[in-house]
Amino acid sequence: MNRNEKTVDVLQELNQFVNDRIEGYKHAAKVTKDPAHQSYYKDLINQSTKFSSEINSTISSFGGDPETSTTAKGKIFRGWMDVKSSITGSDEEAVIKSNLRGEEWAQKAYNDALDHRGELPQNVVQMVEKQKQASLATCERLRQMEKSAD
């Protein structure tokens, strides 16, 4: 596998998690009853959509096909959240906790991509690191929201 193929491979996998993030926040925005939270989740959908576009345009620049699907694990997780929210009536804390779990998965996906740092072009590493930092900030904000939801 050459460097371009490796870059495409790493970014396609990462983008499945970013697409999961979009779907997860769409779900959260739909089920939350808190207008401030809904607004924040919509901001995160927009942020994630930008991240996905950035990744896909980078994939294309390396000769790969854009990644539009989500992970199998993400689909299962959202299905479970649908069932759970219908049972618990989507309490705010449960929504926040599931978002936090999803964001922690995103962190793992960014770290997995950065494990290939040596094989990736510097501009790709910088893009991934920038997105990882934004995800980390989201984790912090969600933890604050969780504390105030108690």
Results as ranks from 00 to 15, higher is better:
Met1Lys: 13
Arg3Gly: 05
Asn4Gln: 11
Glu5Lys: 12
Val8Cys: 03
Val8Arg: 01
Asp9Met: 08
Val10Lys: 09
Val10Ser: 04
Gln12Lys: 06
Glu13Pro: 12
Asn15Leu: 00
Phe17Trp: 09
Phe17Cys: 14
Asn19Thr: 10
Asp20Ser: 08
Ile22Asp: 02
Glu23Leu: 13
Gly24His: 11
Ala28Ser: 01
Ala29Leu: 06
Lys30Cys: 08
Lys30Gly: 00
Val31Asp: 00
Val31Ala: 06
Lys33Asn: 13
Asp34Ala: 06
Asp34Tyr: 07
Pro35Met: 13
Pro35His: 13
His37Pro: 01
His37Trp: 11
Gln38Asp: 12
Asp43Met: 09
Asp43Ala: 10
Ile45Leu: 03
Ile45Trp: 01
Asn46Glu: 11
Phe51Ser: 03
Ser52Asn: 00
Ile55Trp: 01
Asn56Glu: 02
Asn56Lys: 01
Ile59Phe: 00
Ser60Met: 08
Ser60Asn: 14
Ser61Glu: 03
Ser61Pro: 04
Ser61Asp: 07
Ser61Met: 00
Gly63Lys: 11
Gly64Tyr: 05
Asp65Val: 10
Asp65Ser: 15
Glu67Asn: 05
Thr68Glu: 04
Ser69Asp: 15
Ser69Arg: 05
Thr70Met: 11
Thr71His: 01
Thr71Asp: 06
Thr71Asn: 02
Thr71Trp: 03
Gly74Phe: 00
Ile76Leu: 13
Phe77Asp: 10
Phe77Thr: 08
Arg78Ala: 10
Arg78Trp: 03
Arg78Asn: 13
Arg78Pro: 05
Trp80Gln: 14
Asp82Val: 14
Val83His: 06
Ser85Ala: 08
Ser85His: 15
Ser86Asn: 10
Ser86Ala: 05
Thr88Tyr: 02
Ser90Trp: 07
Glu92Lys: 15
Glu93Leu: 14
Glu93Asp: 14
Glu93Cys: 10
Ala94Gln: 13
Val95Cys: 03
Val95Trp: 09
Val95Asn: 02
Asn99Trp: 00
Asn99Cys: 05
Asn99Leu: 02
Asn99Ile: 06
Asn99Tyr: 02
Leu100Gln: 02
Arg101Ala: 14
Arg101Phe: 12
Gly102Arg: 03
Gly102Ser: 07
Gly102Met: 08
Glu103Lys: 03
Glu104Arg: 15
Trp105Ser: 09
Gln107Met: 07
Gln107Pro: 00
Gln107Asp: 15
Lys108Trp: 02
Ala109Val: 10
Ala109Thr: 03
Asp112Met: 05
Ala113Pro: 01
Leu114His: 06
Leu114Glu: 09
Leu114Lys: 07
Glu119Thr: 14
Pro121Asp: 09
Pro121Val: 12
Gln122Trp: 10
Gln122Thr: 12
Asn123Phe: 03
Val124Leu: 07
Val125Gly: 04
Val125Arg: 01
Gln126Asp: 13
Gln126Ile: 10
Val128Ile: 06
Val128Lys: 00
Lys130Asp: 11
Lys130Tyr: 11
Lys132Met: 11
Gln133Asp: 14
Ala134Trp: 03
Leu136Met: 12
Thr138Pro: 12
Cys139Pro: 07
Cys139Asn: 09
Glu140Gly: 07
Arg141Met: 15
Leu142Gln: 05
Arg143Ser: 15
Arg143Asp: 14
Gln144Phe: 08
Glu146Tyr: 13
Lys147Asn: 15
Ala149Gly: 04
Asp150Lys: 11
Asp150Asn: 15
